[in-house]
Each structure stands twice: as C-alpha cells, then as structure tokens.
Design a protein around this nucleic acid. Sequence first.
DNA 1: GCTGTCCAGGCTACAGAGAC
DNA 2: GTCTCTGTAGCCTGGACAGC
Length: 426
Amino acid sequence: MKMLSVGGRLTLVKSVLGSMPIFYMSMFKAPAGILKSLESMRSHFLNGHDSASGKVIWLSWKKVITPRDKGGLGVASLFALNRGLMFKWVWRFLNQGSSLWARVIKAIHGIDGNIGRVPRDGYNSCWSNIVKEVKYLSEKGIDLMKYLCIRVGNGGKTSLWEDIWRVDGRLRDKFPRIYALESCKSITIGDKLAQPSLQFSFRRMPRGGVEQEQYELFVQEMQQIILTSLEDRWSWCLNGSGEYTVASVRSLIDDTLCMDYGQRTRWNEFVPIKVNTHVWKVMTNSLATRFNLSRRGIDIASISCGTCDQGVETVSHLFFRCDMAQQVRRLINRWWMVPDLVTESFEDWRIWVSNIRMGSKTKKMFEGVYYVAWWLLWMFRNKKLFEVKGPSKATFFDDVVSRSFYGVVVGAKSSSLGTTSLRIGT
DNA sequence: GCTGTCCAGGCTACAGAGAC
DNA sequence: GTCTCTGTAGCCTGGACAGC
C-alpha cells in the first residue's frame, strides 16, 4: 500500500473495492452495519491507514463519496450501488413480465409485484426487501418509479387511460370528463385505435362545453400516436438511452442524499489523478499541515511554515501566502502573460481564474500548471522537513515549468492528436 | 467423481479511435 | 473541440466442459 500514490489508491477504491461486492449486492439488501464496515475498509485503504500504523485519517469519507458537483471526490457510495442493483430487478420484472421468475413473483406478490406498496409485516424475502427499499427511497424523496415510462410500440399492452405512457401523466387525469364517458376503462391503446372511431366505446357522444373542449384535445393527441410492429416496453427516463443503468440510479441517490459543500470540485483531466486529489485536499483543507496536526491534538515542535518558517503553516499560507508560493504565482502568470493578482486562499484563486478571459481548453491547461505547482510545493515542503539533504529552491521554478509543460501542455496537445500524453513522475 | 479452465454476467476506470 | 463507442484491465460467482 505504501508504494501506491493516493491517485492509485483512489482508482482501486472505485474500480476494485467498489466492484467486489457486486455479486451479493445484485440480489440482496446489504444491512447498514455491513455497509458501514465495507465503507470503513475503503476509507482506511484510501487513507493508507492500517491498524498497526495508527495513521490519522485525513480524508472524510462523507466528503469522498459526495459527487464532484457538490465538492466531493465522486467515489459513489456502496449504499447507492446496492439500491441501484436491487432496483434493476424491478426494471427486469416490468420488461420480462412473461419470464418464469417474473411469473413466480406475480403468483406470490400479485400481478404488479406489490411494487409501490408496503409488504406484509414479518414477511421477508429478496423481493419484499426490494419493494420495501423502493418505498423507503420514495419517502426520502427519491421516487425511482417516476423515471419509468412506457414506450408505445403496437399499443397492445398499454392501458390508454390508466398507464403513464406520456410525460404529462395519465390520460384519465388530463381528460377526466372524457374518461367518465369511457365504458371500457382498461382498454389498450392498440384496441382503441383499432376501433372505427374514438367514440366507439363511449357511453354516449360528448356534449358541448368542457366535455367538447376535452374531446377535441383528446382527438388531437390521439392523432399524433404512430403505432409500430414492436411490442410496448418500459423505458428508463433518467438517461438518454432509455435503458436502465445502475450508474444512473447510483448518481441520483448520492446526489440527493449527500450534503452540498458549496464548492464544485475542479477536476482537471490534463493532470494525473494524484495531482487532482492533492488539489481537492487543498480545496477541502484536508492536508497534514502543521496547523491541522496541532488542531488534531498531535504534539509537534512548531506550527510555523515548513517552507519559509514565517507564519502559521495552514493550507492558505503554504499555497497562497507563503513567499515561495507568491514567487511561483508571479512566475507562472508572467510565463502565461496573465495580469498578476494576489490571491490569499483557494476560493480567491478560484474566483480569479473563473474571471480570466481565455479559451476553455487553454484555461484548463493554465489551471493544470497551477495544480502541478501546488503539488510540487507540497513535495518541496515535505523534502525540506523530512529529508537530510533538502531540495534546491533555485531549480524549483524550472521544475514547475518542465513538469507542467511536458505533463499538461504537451500532454493536452498530444491527446488531441490521439497519442498518449506524458505523465508527471513522482 | 473430482479438478481445473474458460466464459458469461454484473459492475468499475481509463485510453484511444472515430464521428460529428 | 466534444462526445460516443470500443477495448482492456480489474473484482466476484456459477455453470459448462475437458481431462484425469
């Protein structure tokens, strides 16, 4: 674990530790205690923590699993994965209604599988757990059923009045006076359109007033329907493809349940994950600076800056107010021919960068140079504090230029040419 | 009958190619 | 320049099949 960078650990947390429990979670509801335990293992791995080391946890797992749009690191939660995988059975149940397993569910739980209702007390099964979770999420404001809508094909399976096959809801709610005239309430779209006229199954002809108005609108809507030879099927409205994906539910759940930290995480694809993660730590004040160490009650000799030895070593000081950070800022701005401005915190810097007039890709590259500079500043500070032979300050800016130029600028240009971008070494 | 191998099916991330 | 698709890497289990 010590040989892996935080970027490597982040990738493994998402890809490997996040997919290991898929098999069990595909069918069973993971109990809260198990989820807590698994999340704790992932957190310890990402933090490079093992029980023997007693290393401090710097990355709050709640922030780590928060979507990037809300200021997190975008590692989806296992809770959301589990519920997304469970809901996939509802999707299959609706789309594979004639399969053997769906017929068994219908025989036990009813023709609609009891979805959306509360299962009987004391009766637990895989299916009843799924139904309960759909209900539970709905009460939490995540109504997954509303993202299911019917895509009409030949109209043979879809109830004209009762089913939701239009974005604006059921026809019976939209045209209540016409619905009242219908003698066959469960008629399918296909059967209705096969009749000699739309009034064929009405108790009587529509009269004037509201009834006539609703009837005319109803006729207009029905004229827009084009039936095909395909069977009616369910469509998933949360993504463009219409096909259910666990990822879409996963991001919906995390997006709804996770707290908003106010600042969107600025992820830059031109720099390695470890550098991006470092910038995220700068943004969320999750670095082991001397000030943060003392705040955690760890006994240290001094809390002054490890680079300049002037001022308290906070994140804002190290990367924005420290003499060395300011020199680097001036040199980068001169290199990129950008008017220099003193920024005292990450938030200041973020506002300043967003106001610079630059092409979107160029700005990303410019931000990437800063990201690399902050990462190198942190390496410089660590070498100065923990290595016998300190780093050379004289060559520091050359290092920033060469690594960011080859890593970010050349990398960005070569990626647009379809070749592998150069990566910044450790 | 046991054991080992391969594949399918569920997901993730990332890189590269190609289309628009 | 951006988006989408494809391929490859990883994790798990179960089932089919070949070899001993």
